[in-house]
Amino acid sequence: MTAIEPATLRSAAPSVWTRLRRRKLALIGLALIVLTFFGAIFAPWLTPYEPNNQMFDGLTLQGAPMPPGAQFPLGTDLLGRDLLTRILYGARTSLIIGLVANGVALVIGTLIGITAGYFRGFVGSVLMRLTDLMMAFPALLLAICLAAIFQPSLWIVALVIATVNWVQTARVIYTETSSLSQREFIAAEKTLGAGHLRILFRHILPHLVPMIIVWGTLGISTTVLLEATLSYLGVGVQPPTPSWGNIIFENQTYFQAAPWLVFFPGLAIVILALAFNLVGDALRDVLDPTQRGQDQ
């Protein structure tokens, strides 16, 4: 019995890819994600400038930022730094936070959801009431408070985002786990004397993998947006470390005269969040049986 499940999972993978391949939007999303990773990893080779180098010729004679042109493709910011360079390095911030914060949130959400769904009873209802409580929190306000309380660094921001972002996953996993726990094969395992841990990790978790992948992908989009918002308010990633949100934060006083300083980093945020949304949505159609048939 135990041998069957991993085998079905593996054999499902190619069919997922074939079905995903037929969706143009998902492929576009995937391409945009790959492009962002490429830009983030190879940033030093893609641009001749340094992200924190305040260049003398990066400002006009009046000391204003340079508009997009031949020398600086996307212009410069108010300190004379190359905007394209900062956006490329900023992609690192977004991706690191997107992956770390979302990873932590996913682990917390899955653990809480699976525990509450499997054990139910007292533990289950305490955990789910905690989830309800988090749902009632104005998440952004909580995140801003937390970020303002702690000295914000990259990792603190990631943790703050994770603390407010696990709720959705926990609820989805909870619903799925509690319906799985009712199924016969779980009862059979129990009769055979399998321990709780064995049932949870060998039998329930593998069934949740598709759902975790879907919510993990969609969650990166939320995380990227939240990081950008916190950094825009000045309580997220701190300058001079470039982040798409804090580029806008630093330059917004100039934005009427130099709109590209808001437009390009803003566009980068939208593109990355959109890409993960497109891929996540397609994955949900392909992987999540409860959602199937909605989009045909």
């Binding site: 939007l25 989009s221 947006l225 950008a228 918002t229 825009y232 949100g245 806008i248 917004q252 934005f255 009427q256 709109p259 808001v262 437009f263 803003g266 945020i269 939208v270 969040a273 959109l274 949304n277 497109l278 949505d281």
Partner: peptide
């Protein structure tokens, strides 16, 4: 539907600043 995806992927401060501009 693409427009609706862009709508949920755009952070509010970016939308706000662009509309303002």
């Amino acid at each position: 539907m693409i427009a609706s995806f862009i709508g949920v992927s755009a952070p509010q401060f970016v939308v706000g600043l662009l509309l303002l501009y």
